[in-house]
């Protein structure tokens, strides 16, 4: 008797929908299932959406707002309008930082893409499997090192008097190069270190791109007698151009953010010769506690990245070829 009562009540809940506020969701129909899926969709999305809102999308807007204030964390923020921007365009150190970032990105990305493509093409050539594997692993290895460790190790190796690099160059009859102690060479050292660290990534991108080229096209090129540079310029290059675009875009975005190499290897010096925009931002916001001014540099850097990326995609219509 007592066990029947709840069962009856349970049935009633299902037969009279108005009695159950969740019936629209639990009903055993196609609409009910679609509603359950939609709800689950929002639930599944909630952590990512919330997280991106709080830690990425929101902060971008917040950065822009902060750039209009003067704020040292301890006293309340003070509205200054565009004064931080005016200051930045008159601040030789900030302008030098942006200029250094451009110089770095220009050479680093051009060489990274060229070298990555070259290595990927060499690895595509005919050779024993063990040799291909050894080469590939060697070129990938630097990717495992942190930027901090790379800066420390290569910094020691590039030491003018005691470094291994100058020792071997000396054996070849080259007099010691002031790798880290002379402005021009310091930038060269940072670029070379970045190439050591980042080229493996680009190489894998191109291995992916080259593997994707249909063999029919290459066979056709063979039949037509396309060889050497002609074949590279007219066949291979157009076919990997989508990967080239991707490597260039991610390269510029990554390169403009470079921080740990110059921060540890040269501390931005000698003088300001290797001080990048991100370093100036870091020093303003977190060393001098000028949150507003630091945000200004961050906003300008972000706008530059957006503009360059948009430019790359805009120009890409002229040279990127999709199979």
């Amino acid at each position: 008797m007592s066990s029947e009562a709840p069962t009856a009540q349970h049935n009633e809940l299902h037969t009279h929908r108005s009695a159950n506020p969740f019936a629209w969701l639990t009903e055993n129909t196609l609409q009910g299932m679609a509603r359950r899926k939609a709800l689950l969709g929002y639930l599944f999305l909630a952590p990512t959406m919330l997280g991106i809102l709080i830690f990425t999308a929101g902060p971008v807007v917040f950065s822009f707002v902060l750039s209009l204030f003067r704020w040292n964390v301890f006293s309340p923020p003070e509205w200054v309008g565009a004064a931080n921007y005016a200051r930045m365009f008159a601040d030789s150190r900030a302008l030098t930082g942006f200029w250094n970032s451009f110089v770095f990105v220009f050479f680093a990305v051009a060489l990274q893409v060229a070298l990555g493509l070259l290595l990927a093409m060499i690895l595509q050539a005919r050779m024993p499997t063990w040799l291909r594997y050894t080469y590939r692993t060697s070129f990938l290895l630097p990717m495992l090192m942190s930027g901090a460790a790379t800066a420390i190790v290569l910094g020691y190796m590039l030491h003018k008097e005691f470094g291994a690099v100058n020792y071997y160059l000396g054996r070849l009859g080259i007099s010691p190069i002031p790798w880290l102690t002379e402005p021009g060479w310091a930038m060269v050292s940072i670029i070379l270190s970045y190439l050591w660290l980042a080229t493996g990534f680009t190489m894998i991108l191109f291995i992916g791109g080259l593997t994707n080229i249909s063999t029919e096209i290459l066979d056709a090129a063979d039949v037509d007698g396309a060889q050497g540079f002609t074949r590279f310029w007219h066949i291979t290059l157009p076919l990997v151009s989508p990967t080239l675009l991707f490597a260039a875009v991610t390269g510029v975005i990554g390169g403009l953010q470079v921080f740990d190499l110059p921060y540890i290897m040269t501390r931005g010096g000698p003088g300001d010769s290797t001080r990048t925009a991100v370093m100036v931002m870091y020093e303003s916001a977190f060393k001098n506690m000028e949150i507003g001014y630091g945000s200004t540099i961050a906003v300008v850097l972000f706008l530059i990245i957006l503009a360059v990326t948009a430019g790359q995609f805009g120009l890409s219509k002229r040279w990127v070829f999709y199979q």
Binding site: T56, S63, L256, A298, I305, L306
Partner: peptide, 18 residues
């Protein structure tokens, strides 16, 4: 969400720290 992939860490680090 895909558009936020374009946003570099440096553009958000100050507010995130706050």
């Amino acid at each position: 969400i895909m558009a936020t992939m374009m946003i570099p860490l440096q553009a958000t680090i100050i507010p995130v720290f706050v």
